[in-house]
């Protein structure tokens, strides 16, 4: 359990930090969004290990990552894209997608379709978690464009 937890923390951090650098995120934001990415992935891993419920674990982790990303953007006076995008990337079920594609490539369509549906369900949870987390903790209020009528 402890080894798995450490692996989740370190790998989530490295993966998010790498993505941050790859997407040319501002330098002062990379350490923070890697920490949020690591926290999000560790939350997913812990909830999944403790409950066995993968979809809710992914939803909660994405919600947490998006919410923390929005809060960090507000505190550090930076754009939320930097934090939210990079924080949720460690959650993308890359290995599930690869296994689905690999099974289909070997002609096992049943296994491929089953694995693909599982992976897509996880992605759907990420989308929902990100959307709700961002909507609840959005950094900027929309500007009032109706103050002057044409």
């Amino acid at each position: 359990m402890l080894e798995g937890l450490l692996r989740a923390i370190v790998s989530g951090y490295l993966g998010a930090a790498g993505f941050g650098a790859l997407l040319n995120a501002p330098k002062k934001g990379i350490l923070w969004d890697a920490a949020i990415g690591s926290l999000g992935y560790t939350a997913y891993w812990l909830i999944f290990q403790l409950t066995g419920a993968e979809l809710p674990a992914m939803f909660v982790a994405a919600l947490l990552a998006a919410a923390l990303g929005q809060v960090a953007a507000r505190k550090l006076h930076m754009i939320s894209t930097v934090f939210v995008t990079i924080a949720i990337l460690p959650l993308v079920p890359g290995i599930g997608l690869y296994r689905a594609m690999s099974a289909m490539g070997q002609g096992d369509m049943t296994l491929g379709a089953k694995t693909a549906v599982q992976a897509m369900s996880l992605i759907l949870m990420i989308v929902m978690g990100t959307g709700i987390g961002s909507a609840l903790f959005s950094m900027r209020k929309p500007v009032d464009t109706k103050e002057e009528e044409l």
Binding site: F19, S80, T81, V92, G94, I95, S102, G131
Partner: peptide
């Protein structure tokens, strides 16, 4: 093999487009 291939493919994942899609729809 799974870990090596999936790990190598991850930098190509369209994460930014996915997030932009969600954030634009939210708005």
């Amino acid at each position: 093999v799974d870990a090596m291939v999936a790990g190598a493919l991850m930098p190509l994942v369209p994460g930014l487009s996915m997030t932009n899609a969600v954030l634009d729809v939210v708005r």
